[in-house]
């Protein structure tokens, strides 16, 4: 990977705590991210990707809690920081943009004030914050910032709001940006603009970025590496080219096969993976993907561990050469 990692997550587990015991939902996720690197975390709904991101920012609400593991961010061990120290990191060093821009802005505050508040909360003087908020609004391509800064969120369209949310997230020039499906709620035409904008700003500010998504196509062109999650496990972690051309885990291969390909007439328009992911309450013996896996065999009754494979890592006992087509 070269150079010290900005973010290093080791064996991170998240569980729902209750009097009858812990129900583990994220089972020992490990990932690494260098400064300025971009990573995509892909997985189906319920695979634990958003939960992992919340855990990274230490924002899990009870009964959810981190039950084991280590999160190293820029030399700090986040699991041992006090809430106050964590608060100083949030928003200034690590920021987040989310799915639904329609609800992530305060309806009663002017846009400009919301951008400025992201800075004043971290000690920037009012006048300075005001001046920089206009620059930021201009930077995220919101027209006529002087005027729009005085608008309320309901006067903005979805795309405009997402631009404002991005301006807020980037206000303190964070070193890590987590984008949790930032385009899901937007029109397809706006999606590309927002993706391009974030990608451009990421390069400009040399921010490490984690894209959380269930859409492989969206991120294929703008990330360095992809982490594939399934049922709370990382099943594959690979450079983006390798992941698309030589997937090392049967689940990744099924995901890629499920991507619609209108030019390929030889297969059905939509391919599905049979079955569904296990619920956290359902215990699967061995590999969590085994019940749906075309490659499953006796060895898979023992849970595989994430091991180096080709240029990345994968959690599968069956070597790619032995896969059935």
């Amino acid at each position: 990977m070269g150079g010290p990692a900005l973010l290093e997550v080791e064996d991170l587990a998240v569980a729902a705590r209750s009097r009858r015991g812990d129900l583990e939902i994220v089972h020992g996720v490990s990932l690494q991210l260098g400064p300025g690197e971009t990573l995509a975390v892909v997985g189906e709904t319920g695979s634990g990707k958003s939960l992992t991101m919340l855990a990274l920012m230490r924002l899990l609400a009870p009964p959810l809690a981190i039950t084991r593991g280590r999160i190293a961010f820029d030399g700090h061990d986040l699991t041992s920081l006090s809430e106050r120290e964590m608060r100083e990191l949030r928003g200034s060093q690590m920021a987040m943009i989310y799915q639904d821009p329609m609800t992530s802005l305060n309806p009663l505050m002017r846009i400009g004030a919301q951008v400025a508040e992201a800075m004043t909360a971290h000690g920037v003087a009012n006048s300075e914050a005001r001046r920089r908020s206009l620059e930021l609004l201009a930077r995220v391509e919101i027209p006529d910032p002087e005027r729009t800064a005085r608008s309320y969120p309901h006067e903005f369209s979805g795309g405009m709001r997402q631009r404002a949310v991005i301006a807020i997230a980037l206000a303190m020039r964070p070193r890590l940006l987590i984008a949790d499906e930032p385009t899901t709620a937007l029109d397809v035409t706006i999606q590309q603009q927002i993706l391009a904008l974030v990608n451009e700003l990421r390069r400009e500010l040399r921010m490490a970025t984690i894209w959380v998504t269930h859409d492989l196509g969206v991120v294929a062109r703008m990330v360095d590496r992809v982490v594939v999650m399934y049922a709370g496990h990382v099943v594959e972690d690979a450079p983006v080219d390798q992941l698309f051309h030589a997937p090392q885990h049967p689940y990744t291969r099924s995901l890629l096969a499920a991507l619609p390909n209108p030019t390929d007439q030889s297969r059905p328009a939509l391919v599905q993976i049979p079955g569904r992911p296990p619920l956290p309450t359902e215990m699967v013996e061995g590999c969590p993907f085994r019940p749906r896996c075309a490659q499953a065999r006796e060895a898979c009754r023992v849970r595989p561990v994430l091991e180096p494979r080709a240029a990345g890592r994968a959690a599968c006992w069956v070597p790619v050469e032995e896969w059935r087509p």
């Binding site: 924002l59 608060r87 609800t103 992530s104 802005l105 305060n106």
Partner: peptide
């Protein structure tokens, strides 16, 4: 979401 967002931004 906007209250959660405020927590993500590290507001007291």
């Amino acid at each position: 979401d906007f209250v959660k967002a405020a927590r993500v931004l590290g507001f007291p």
